[in-house]
């Protein structure tokens, strides 16, 4: 039986906390087929047992090991080491948008606090819970979200402008879209989407879509349709006149 190929990989990993830190270089031996998270585990095992790293499934489904590898927001468990040139130093940093707990582990609790402000599914009184697949298709895409918060991390409204009070971020606009488009939902969240959750701060530069490891078309399928629904309600004078004259939506 053939022995797996091994080679040395050099990583620069952020060590520190929210008050500051430094990039520390480690060289570890890795095997063919390994991912960045494996290399992090090798660093923990061989050099730095106190290196903090959050992970769980190692299968791209739990959303725990989000970080920035060579500056790109990624799941470390899905980023193969052979994506990088032999001899290239791989940098690993925590997500920039959130406070650092320790090393490459972030405090993402802000997301859960904002999530709690979203009104859950409100089925109509006479709902029989039957709807067609074509009505389910759109919201099923949004159910793929694993809450890795890479989209929140890369969104420049949160990352560079720090508008966390005014803007809820792409992950939760996806959730709001899944509720607003749900065929049996009867709640109206549009005013909240406009005012409290600040969808107008999104200038649709699509970094959230580029970063999503689940391939959810966040901007085109969730945010823009929500913006268009707001146009229907608040910015379209013809529809406004139509509603006034007919009383129909």
């Amino acid at each position: 039986m053939n022995q797996p190929t091994t080679q040395d990989v050099t990583l620069e990993i952020f060590r520190g906390d929210d008050d500051g830190g430094e990039m520390v270089e480690y060289t570890v031996e890795v095997q063919e087929g390994m991912v960045v998270l494996d290399a992090i585990h090798a660093v923990q095992a061989q050099h730095a047992g106190d290196l903090a790293c959050r992970w769980n499934c190692k299968a791209g489904k739990c959303g725990s090991c989000s970080g920035e590898v060579n500056g790109h927001p990624k799941l470390m468990c899905m980023d193969r080491l052979d994506n990088y040139e032999a001899g290239e130093t791989i940098t690993v940093r925590p997500m920039k948008t959130f406070p650092i707990v320790k090393d490459i582990t972030c405090d993402v609790s802000w997301n859960f606090e904002r999530n709690a402000k979203i009104q859950t599914l409100q089925p109509r009184a006479d709902t029989d819970w039957q709807f067609t697949q074509r009505e389910a298709d759109r919201v099923q895409e949004f159910r793929k979200c694993i809450e890795c918060f890479l989209c929140q991390n890369v969104c420049h409204v949160l990352r560079d402008h720090d508008r966390k009070e005014e803007f809820i971020g792409p992950r939760f606009l996806v959730r709001l879209a899944s509720l607003e488009m749900h065929p049996v939902d009867d709640a109206d969240r549009l005013e909240q989407v406009k005012d409290e959750f600040g969808i107008g701060y999104c200038n649709i530069t699509k970094c959230c879509t580029e970063a999503c490891p689940e391939g959810i078309t966040i901007t085109d399928n969730a945010i823009i349709p929500m913006k268009e629904r707001l146009v229907d309600r608040y910015y379209d004078p013809v529809l406004w006149l139509w509603r006034k004259l007919t009383g129909k939506d």
Binding site: D8, D18, E22, V24, A42, H47, G71, H72, D160
Partner: peptide, 25 residues
């Protein structure tokens, strides 16, 4: 043989002005 080298580099928290990034592409 694996080894550990400790060196200092700018903290990632300073990435906040035009063009500053950890991206290498």
């Amino acid at each position: 043989m694996a080894q550990a080298d400790v060196s200092t580099a700018p903290s990632q928290r300073s990435l906040d002005s035009l063009g500053q990034t950890g991206r290498t592409d």
